[in-house]
Design a binder for these strands. Structure first.
Lengths: 294, 294
DNA sequence: CCGTTTCTCTGACTAGAGTCAGAGAAATGG
DNA sequence: CCATTTCTCTGACTCTAGTCAGAGAAACGG
């Protein structure tokens, strides 16, 4: 606990001071944040607003300022004349590059005066912290399986199976779980979100009071090793219990060794095949602890 | 570099958001900082000002506010009627405890939702980062050997020698280096500072153009393992070269194994005894690279 | 004892970062 | 086509966190 407090103090002070020093530009920080959020491709005002959590009046003024400085152009959207599209000008792109440069310089300052060994330790520790703190920012929520995010996850999942299985993976050869099977009351789909992007999924198919089936467990490669799979599994079990299921079952392929390890570690017991899934080598089941009031 | 940038982003966001959430009190942050800085024992307004780097007018107003909230009392100093002494009231103490409690809660939040293994890794990584970043905040400066800070360092140094040497350490049995030997032009004393406290020292005795003597190398136990000794040694060598010395020498005790390792790693060559220091087992010398313009 | 310095306080001002209400224009739903 | 909703903008505020100049009282130095 004391370590955490000291860490907070030192890091916020040091990082804060450096941030102020390096990212100081002849404009308020809010304006710089907007400049950054616009991005190369341009962005709608409302997108910027929701991502940075700004008041519409406030953003309007910040944009006016950036416009006055000739860093961005603000135009009406061609389709919807209410929305405003913000785009970087040449000068805006340069300013953004300057911010990047300073941010790099800031990073370099942190590594300054360290010998190679210390530098290595610092970077390792930073990576560890970043990943562990990132894990806590991931949110899991029910998602409609036809949404863009859901389709992204499912496609990534299939692509990975195709890549890892010995003979590839063809969804048509596998037991289907159509989108209508993954919406209540037939089932549900959970998607893990990080920083506005989908980074994992997991689905359930209910069978009345019989065991619910767990399907489509996938975590983005960029966020593996953060025990996200474990969290997703817990959430699925909770959802299954809530829907009245007394057990969950699933089947998996021998190539998915991490998944198999996760199931075993999470109290899943290997059982004999309960279906004829072509790609499965292992079948697992877990009895869910009844709720207190059940 | 990318790791460092990602770390900065994630940590400032997460820590910043939590800070705002947990340390939010019905008063500006500045007032809370002052409340904290007052401490149990009370403090002078000018001390608070210099430590927090506040404008006198600004502090005056913050104190007025805290006084209005009955969290502190502000009185004239008995000896010097110009200075104002700030003390916590009972309510102020309670509010300060509340801040502590919230700060702890914040720390706990960071560890939330992690399994014991992840928690251990996070704490280790935090300790590493805190120490490495701390090391960069240490400043080394010339100090008068009669100052309080200098006496603290020298006494800590002697106490440690007494503790570690086989037969203890008695300054009277050792070659003397009096305070007058450690001020220019006879020599100098460097003190390492961190967070307003002295955390290490190192001294030089000049002998004209002959080898300068390095004495009194000490680093506070709380900051060991941060290569501070190495930095101190480099600073001493630089100072010796600046004073016209072409080499530095030193003697040391067999018990000070880290120091001996440091000297060897820093290019020091063991030489035969050049003095009759009673406590010494090893004598070292290093020829200083001439300056380019010499 | 007198000029200078130190310490605090007051008044006047600024910039950043928002919040809130309402107006106006465009899109949408029935 | 008309009411409602969505999106942006403007004006009027607020709070925080300062800065700066000057005044007044006390202490200090010679």
């Amino acid at each position: 606990m004391a370590t955490v407090r000291r860490f907070s103090r030192v890091v916020t002070q040091r990082l804060g001071a450096l941030n102020d020093e390096y990212l100081a530009r002849p404009r308020p920080l809010g304006a710089s944040r907007v400049l950054y959020e616009v991005g190369e491709a341009g962005a709608d005002a409302r997108t910027i607003r929701s991502r940075l959590g700004l008041d519409s009046g406030y953003l309007s003024r910040l944009l006016r300022r950036l416009e006055d400085e000739h860093l961005v152009t603000v135009e009406h959207d061609a389709d919807d004349h209410r929305v405003r599209v913000v785009r970087l000008t040449e000068a805006g792109r340069a300013e953004r590059a300057e911010l990047d440069r300073r941010s790099d310089e800031l990073a370099r300052t942190l590594l300054d005066h360290l010998d190679p060994d210390q530098r290595g330790r610092l970077i390792d520790a930073m990576a560890t912290i970043e990943r562990l703190l990132t894990a806590q920012l991931v949110e899991i929520a029910v998602e409609d399986p036809t949404s863009e995010a859901a389709r992204f996850c499912l496609q990534s999942y299939f692509a990975e199976l195709d890549d890892r299985f010995d003979d590839g993976f063809d969804p048509d050869m596998s037991i289907r779980a159509e989108t209508e099977d993954l919406v209540p009351p037939a089932g549900l789909l959970l998607v893990a979100w990080f920083d506005g992007h989908p980074v994992g999924c997991g689905a359930l198919k209910f069978h009345g009071r019989g065991p619910a089936e767990i399907k489509r467990m996938w975590v983005s490669p960029s966020l593996r090793g953060l025990a996200l799979g474990r969290r997703m599994l817990r959430e699925l079990e909770r959802a299954a219990a809530e829907a009245g299921a007394t057990a969950v079952r699933l089947e998996t392929n021998q190539r998915l060794v991490e998944a198999i390890g996760l199931y075993r570690a999470s109290g899943y017991r290997e059982v004999s095949a309960f279906n004829d899934e072509a790609y499965a080598h292992h079948w697992f089941e877990k009895v869910l602890a009844g709720r207190d009031d059940a």
